[in-house]
Design a protein around this nucleic acid. Sequence first.
RNA 1: UCCUGGGUAGCUCAAUGGCAGAGCAUCCGGCUGUUAACCGGAGGGUUGGUGGUUCGAGUCCACCCCCAGGAGCCA
Length: 433
Amino acid sequence: MKVCMTTTRIEQIRQTLGQEIWIEGWLYNKRSSGGIQFLQVRDGSGIIQGVVTKKNEKNFLLAERLTQESSIRVKGIAKEDPRSPTGYELSIQEIELVHLAEEYPITPKDHGTGFLMDNRHLWMRSSKQVPVLRIRHEVMQAIRDYFNEHGFIATESPILTGVSVEGTTTLFGVDYFGEKAFLSQSGQLYLEATAMALGRVYWIGPTFRAEQSKTRKHLTEFWMAEAEVAYFDHEDNLRLQEDLVKYIIGRVIQNKLPDLKALDRDISKLEKIIAESFARVTYKQAIDLLNEKGMGKSWGDDFGAPDEEAISDHFKKPVFIEKFPAVMKAFYMEPDPENQELVKAADLIAPEGYGEIIGGSERISNKELLLKKLEEHKLPREPYEWYIDLRKYGSVPHAGFGMGVERTVAWITGVTHLRECIPFPRQLHRLTP
RNA sequence: UCCUGGGUAGCUCAAUGGCAGAGCAUCCGGCUGUUAACCGGAGGGUUGGUGGUUCGAGUCCACCCCCAGGAGCCA
């Protein structure tokens, strides 16, 4: 169904060459040279250069008045033109001014990040931010399509919770009618319940971490794509994750190639990801590898950002790190039968220094073991009663994972900072806009 | 929370302890193929705050506020 009958979107311009069309958008930039003016018009789907000459005096005078980011409708005929920065050019027949913009704070010159973040609501209009947000959309849609096509049911987890998933992470507390509640840091526990009802479930939702982290790889509010599958084990889990990640990248290459190019992304690196198997190392092998590289690691150490980067640089492809010592990880993870000190968990580290994008594990299905682990982690039993119930009534082996959407988007787009991968980032000391 | 670097025009940045500057943006003028267009002109400042040193502080000292980068933790 065609919803907008009268206007053409710039991304469709190729199909309208030679025809009279209307474009509705904003003036991105303007250049002029005496009797000719070049209007860079953007509409969210792309940018096209429009040309106005003195021959049409009414348009010419109006174009002279136009300010950066003024909203306009323009009528014209598009054609290919190598002199245009985008390859296509619109010879403008008519300009309708919708709103004359006031002095726009973001100029075509350099700006600092603090200023851009203060103006995030405007910054997102710029030529780099638009493709990133369009790719984010494609990633989200690809995740939904992948799961939907594989028999998963989308089930939503609550945002307001009375229980923390891991107990260790700092949570945002809220007052819930006089009771203490928290903003969810993961939907996993709830997904385990819905997986027992529906078999295979997923959801994409916001998660909140009140950690005082202040780096390019952290947000206090970020989106996680989580999946949970009944009768799944650790191996199944890793296979699913690899297949999903490859599918997402394939979809972005297929549908958002112009945006990747606009971001100067090295597409051959992404194509290589799809073509090859991901690397796999155990925690122990990773420790040994880091020691070979002289990073002085010993058993029980966690991996920091420099460690992850060294590991991913070594393989130059996504790498699963699996079989972590149980003491380092969450209470609900299934021990490795070959070594009870380890758990059947894995982190997926993205290449090119983008860090961990997925964390997953097989979950404990035995009630007594779960109770023992809760105790070892010094967690109270009472808020977990419903979770323990899942191990009382038809418990099955099951596994799942959570993927950080922004980190995945950052990796695919080649953007170095997570704040550019979400429309309105929430960071330490940054709550507006 | 800790470490490091910053805060000067709307923005990005200059300025030996000695008259507060440039580019972009804005306004005025010029140019019929611009590519962050270019050329000429104009307006625009409580140098983050408080206190101190000094004949004199944007610059030095103390405390505070704010921003950025990184660490830890994590996705």
